[in-house]
Design a protein around this nucleic acid. Structure first.
Length: 588
RNA sequence: UGGGGAAUAGUGUAACGGCAGCACAACUGACUCUGGAUCAGUUAGUCUAGGUUCGAAUCCUAGUUCCCCAGCCA
């Protein structure tokens, strides 16, 4: 623990562990130092259950959970379920699973904003009594007209000066369901000329006769976000209510509502209105944007509904469930979230950074295995036809404790088509006529001939092997420039492999021509399915979502569609490929 | 044209009046039974113009550019 930044007790510990604290953590540390919240730190992740979580939500979860964990505070998971028209139990379930998978722990603090509806209702009645809220009979169109514009002030609703008694009575009737949807609202009486549009008598409640996924038909009036959110935070004792930048304009309202309830209340609870309620601090940070994908729920919903992808968990989606199916690990995502930082200005992180974090984690943790995606048959002419050897292969060179396994070797093998060239260009080190290469963990082999079909395509290779190089080393010390992966033709298992690429061809899919939308830049080759792949036999034991490295190819995981007799793998991400870069510069 | 925010290498971030640093990307090279990993190195930055100061990314003034707000969505 460094002492150059000596702050109070455990607070100092938490702070100095974070070498470069972002502005929010600095704020939390300052609050702890000044005793603003009496030592409490309580954050929350408050999703609306109207869609699946994506990598942008992961950033928020990581921030909120990370702060609570680092400062010895609490982290709540709370559904902000105030709009029954958009919300579904399916989304609640997926969000719970995703937050848990990401490693954030809310312990026993899973809450629903809708469980606080009765308390919110009572506070609304209190505002009416204080003359700070009124029932308005304007319809949606009229309300918009009265609101004014960005540059023109609004004008007062004709219903703004109803008596407290009339407002109380009308609001009670609204709650009882005596009015149709949209016919009335409850509004805060603030200032119709306020330069911040959110303060022009914002709507607190609207009438919606709709079944709620959790509250059933108990309510037909539903609170608006601004009215509900601060109270949800207040009730739970949230200290730092962290949200995204677009809510900056809402902060004055967040504060106004809590202050309005607190007006006339006292610290000790004496007086007619009782004790003051807790007033959290709202803090805003910038959303995550990533190149080559889209992040808004609306656009992701369209991709699903219009069948551009196969569902919310399609491995091409930036959703948490899609990334899980793609083969991402929670720690890779967490690490990415740490690296991108937290700020107050919009930025777009390169997909390359995400992929770097992915490879960094997978390199350390995933078992190596051999698989041939585009097979080319190889016959080792001087190897006995009936012989099969079990050769020892290292499971993970980065982790000796992962041990070794045995891989069958036989006279007929498959290698990757792209590992052979009849006329190799400069810098191509792999197999070619007359050239010797190593088969990984097996033998040195030399290509003696290539068999072609009628169209001139190479369909089979003949090689000889050097028995003295068993295991992969030449006793005479001679070197080869390439090592190829391979599988035994007789022992390998057939598998389907799904190769994924960016969903969009443009870094910013929203950068479109007049009249187009983001779908104009969908990548037609974002999914390529290979059905004639071969994998080493050890893979029949792999379970759904197991993460592996196919040597020299990339990281792959077992798709949930996979069955022991019909294996299916997803390519999570390719290995960095120096040869591909050489090829690219040669063709340019 | 009202109000609220924000600008640091290609990208993402650090600096809290005192040597502009880190990571990703790109490029060199070394090493390698994965053209992976690893290691060493290179390229590259304070939105503009003034001012304060011994000293400015940081403070002041003016400007420029970008983002958000006119849902009975969140």
């Amino acid at each position: 623990m460094e002492n150059e930044k000596d702050v109070l007790g455990s607070v100092g510990g938490a702070e100095s562990q974070e070498r470069k604290a972002d502005f929010i953590r600095q704020m939390v540390a300052d609050d702890l130092k000044t005793g603003r919240w009496n030592g409490a730190v309580c954050t929350r992740f408050p999703p609306e259950p109207n869609g699946y979580l994506h990598i942008g939500h992961a950033k928020s979860i990581n921030l909120n959970y990370g702060i609570a964990a680092e400062f010895g505070g609490r982290f709540n998971l709370r559904f902000d379920d105030t709009n029954p028209e958009k919300e579904e139990q399916e989304y609640v379930d997926s969000i719970i699973a995703d937050v848990r998978w990401l490693g954030a722990d809310w312990e026993d603090r899973l809450f629903y904003g809708s469980d606080y509806f009765q308390q919110m209702y009572e506070w609304a009645v209190e505002l009416i009594r204080k003359g700070k809220a009124y029932v308005c009979d304007l319809n949606a169109d009229e309300t918009r007209e009265y609101r004014g514009t960005l540059t023109r002030p609004g004008k007062d609703s004709p219903y703004r000066n109803r008596s407290v008694e009339e407002n109380l009575d009308l609001f009670e009737q609204m709650r009882k369901g005596e009015f149709p949807d949209g016919s009335r609202t409850l509004r805060a009486k603030i200032d119709m000329a306020h330069p911040n549009l959110n303060m022009r008598d914002p709507i607190m409640y609207r009438i919606v006769h709709e079944h709620h996924h959790r509250q059933g038909d108990q309510w037909c009036i539903y609170p608006m976000y601004d009215w509900a959110h601060g109270f949800e935070d207040s009730i739970e004792g949230i200290t730092h209510s962290i949200c995204t930048l677009e809510f900056e304009n809402h902060r004055p309202l967040y504060d106004w509502f809590i202050d309005a309830v607190n007006e006339g209340r006292t610290d000790d609870g004496s007086g007619p209105w009782g004790r003051k309620i807790h007033h959290p601090q709202q803090i805003e940070f910038a959303r995550l944007n990533l190149t080559y994908t889209v992040m808004s729920k609306r656009k992701l919903l369209r991709l699903v509904k219009e069948n551009y992808v196969k569902g919310w968990d399609d491995p091409r989606m930036p959703t948490v469930s899609g990334m899980r199916r793609r083969g991402y690990s929670p720690s890779a995502i967490r690490n990415f979230c740490k690296r991108i930082g937290v700020n107050k200005f919009n930025s777009t992180v390169e997909m390359a950074l995400l992929e770097h974090c992915l490879r960094e984690d997978l390199n350390k943790t995933s078992a190596r295995v051999m698989a041939v995606l585009r097979p080319l048959k190889v016959v080792i002419d001087n190897y006995p036809a009936d012989q099969v050897e079990e050769l020892e292969a290292v499971n993970n060179p980065e982790d000796p404790s992962a041990g070794t396994r045995r891989v069958p070797f036989s006279r007929e093998l498959y290698i990757e088509q792209e590992d052979f060239m009849e006329e190799p260009p400069k810098k191509f080190f792999r197999l070619a006529p007359g050239r010797e290469v190593r088969l990984r963990y097996a033998y040195f082999v030399t290509c003696t001939s290539a068999v072609k079909d009628a169209q001139g395509n190479v369909v089979e290779l003949h090689c000889t092997y050097d028995p003295a190089t068993r295991g992969g080393d030449a006793p005479d010390g001679r070197k080869v420039k390439a090592t190829l992966h391979w599988v035994s033709a007789s022992r390998a298992c057939r598998a389907e492999v799904r190769l994924y690429d960016n969903l969009f061809t443009k870094e910013n899919p929203d950068d479109v021509e007049e009249g187009q939308d983001f779908t104009a830049h969908l990548n037609p080759n974002s999914l390529e399915t290979l059905r004639d792949c071969f994998v080493e036999p050890s893979l029949t034991r792999a379970k759904a979502l197991d993460r592996l490295q196919f040597e020299r190819l990339g990281y792959f995981c077992v798709d949930p569609d996979s069955k022991p007799d019909a294996l299916v793998f997803n390519r999570t991400v390719g290995l960095r490929d120096a040869w591909a870069r050489i090829q690219k510069t040669q063709t340019e």
